[in-house]
Design a protein around this nucleic acid. Structure first.
Lengths: 348, 348
DNA sequence: GTGAAAGCGCTAACAA
DNA sequence: TTGTTAGCGCTTTCAC
């Protein structure tokens, strides 16, 4: 044990070693290294040189202990860092690392017990804040942190606690964007094929879509909404229903995600319907592996999740600095135009 | 500042507070809380009760400072935690969190400067070890850590440093598995459609595939290899070439990844060739979003990356404990059987 | 301009 | 069985 300590102590120089080598006191060395206080330039230089020579690296643990701030935050994910959690964490980490804050990664996989253990561990590590991220399927219980005043942000996740800060994509605005794009392209019979009703995202996207159609004066029966699974198979299935129905076939289809859109496009091709000439298709997610592989490539909504992660980072930094943020914030999404909608054309 | 300190000091109780409330000394409280030394049960209970009451949580920073071990490790990824990095990190985190080790997440995105900054930061945090993970496209430079004896593991990443420990999937064995499966199914004209030659994985997979065919006595001209991009489009393209060529069409196709396989399957369907009756198809990666969406669902290789992450965690723990590990280790992959190969049938 | 020393929260060795 | 204290590495106030 003392063996271990001894070894690491000899391997990693402390400020004491630097001071000694430079022939100054520890206090002086500290001032020199941190650029604080008044020091003779020559002394400062000597200390810096010694530090360099020993490749001295200050011990953040000691610094944090003293400072009462650890410059670390924790991320608790329930998405196993999957499709959605990943870019968020990426943006978050990018933003925080610019402020020299490190990120602890915790995967709870929807197991409350695991989550609790991770929170405990993060509190032990004295993190300066916690970001909770998830699959957004539904509101979750607020994170049980027993420490008053510890900043917590819900990113792509939501809770009802009144003072919680939640960051989410603006699904409604995004859907409006998509539908509006189709309208501007001259489409007037715009169907919506989407996922299970129980997802708040499904309800919001439908609302945005319907709002856009209403503004354009599109009648309800020219705007059928089909809900099903988030899968290609459902996209193909829904397409059959749309084209086998009694009413006129749609000239555009706004899909709840890219997988559905892919199924729809495949279905159209197999029916001999041309995309985008006969029917325009818009997806949702900009999951590039899919959106770039459809034939033709898919125009779709990007939720800008990396930017959402960055925003979470910025907000967290502000919370740590003592600012207060609460409420649910919806961040803008954008439309990524590829070939599945065709060029603008006059209204039919 | 001292304001901040004061606040957090009052919010988070220290062992001193616990000791005071229990009416014992700090040393006694420490023994009680850590279960060390000899204590009267009643005293121990009193301390525990006080700790409970104050919801005391030991400060790991102080503990680490004293102990010279931080119980944290860093992960440096160059994959932006994408398709491959993600499950590895997941397995790693799962394994390490069982040993109460926390994971710092760093994304370097192939920028050596960012990587260096992250290493610096991790060293400052006195991590007990570092895991490097990447896209495995090629050997990388060894991680420049200026600290002697700091354990480093390369997971899904590789370097030439002789004492480095690298964990990789056994591509060759996996390809053998795939090709052997096709042979056992009675296939004898087995094509291989794969990615760019510059990937070591491509070369290894080809070798495994050819080894299996050689063992089965399949002639070279019944085993064409086509290299191209890692894309669906290439899969479709390659399929045309295979079927438009002079030689007999293949009765099985082993693909370098699932995207290619999807292109191949789509191409086959569009030609009216039935999978698996006429042609069996095997993919590689078990990227479920693709493998489960092909028609029929895709039999494919799973690289067991999560398990690779776990293994990295176990090895890292051993390295930290002082054990030595070096060399390149190839971990077994497995075949996930779905519907794209058909049931076994006698050799034709 | 520089040095000495207290203290961040905890553990472990030594005293009592 | 319990208390006291030195020290982990660093910063910062206060003397000199």
């Amino acid at each position: 044990m003392s063996d271990t300590r001894r070894r690491s102590a000899s391997a990693v120089p402390t400020i004491r070693d630097v001071a000694q080598l430079a022939g100054v006191s520890i206090g002086t060395a500290s001032k020199a290294l941190n650029g604080t206080g008044q020091l003779r330039p020559e002394t400062r230089a000597r200390v810096m040189a010694s530090a360099q020579q020993l490749s001295f690296r200050p011990n953040d643990l000691a610094h944090s202990l003293h400072r009462g701030q650890s410059f670390t935050v924790g991320v608790i994910s329930n998405d196993s860092f999957g499709r959605f959690g990943m870019p968020i964490v990426e943006g978050l980490e990018e933003c925080l690392s610019d402020s020299r804050i490190s990120v602890f990664m915790c995967n709870a996989t929807d197991d409350p017990q695991r989550e609790a253990r991770h929170v405990e561990s993060l509190l032990g590590k004295r993190v300066d804040g916690i970001v909770v991220t998830g699959r957004r399927a539904d509101r979750r219980e607020p994170l049980r942190v027993a420490v008053a005043g510890l900043p917590v942000i819900y990113a792509f996740s939501q809770t009802d606690a009144p003072d919680a800060l939640c960051l989410l994509p603006d699904d409604e605005g995004a859907a409006f964007l998509a539908a509006d794009h189709l309208i501007r392209l001259g489409r007037r019979r715009i169907a919506h094929v989407t996922g299970p009703e129980r997802f708040e995202a499904v309800r919001l996207r439908r609302a945005g879509y319907q709002e856009a159609l209403a503004q354009a004066g599109v009648a309800d029966d020219a705007a059928p909404v089909l809900t099903g699974e988030w899968s290609e198979a459902w996209g193909r299935d829904a397409l059959q229903r749309l084209f086998d129905a009694d009413r006129a076939a749609p000239d555009a289809i706004f899909c709840g995600n890219d997988q559905i859109a892919r199924g729809v496009i495949d279905g159209l091709r197999e029916r001999g319907v041309t995309v985008p000439d006969d029917v325009s298709v818009v997806g949702f997610d900009n999951w590039r592996i899919i959106a770039e592989a459809t034939r033709p490539p898919l125009t779709t909504i990007d939720m800008n999740l990396k930017e959402l992660g960055r925003e979470a980072g910025r907000r967290l930094i502000e919370l740590i600095a003592g600012k207060r943020h609460t409420g649910v914030h919806r961040l803008p999404c954008s439309l990524v135009v590829r070939a599945s909608c065709g060029a603008p054309q006059p209204p039919t």
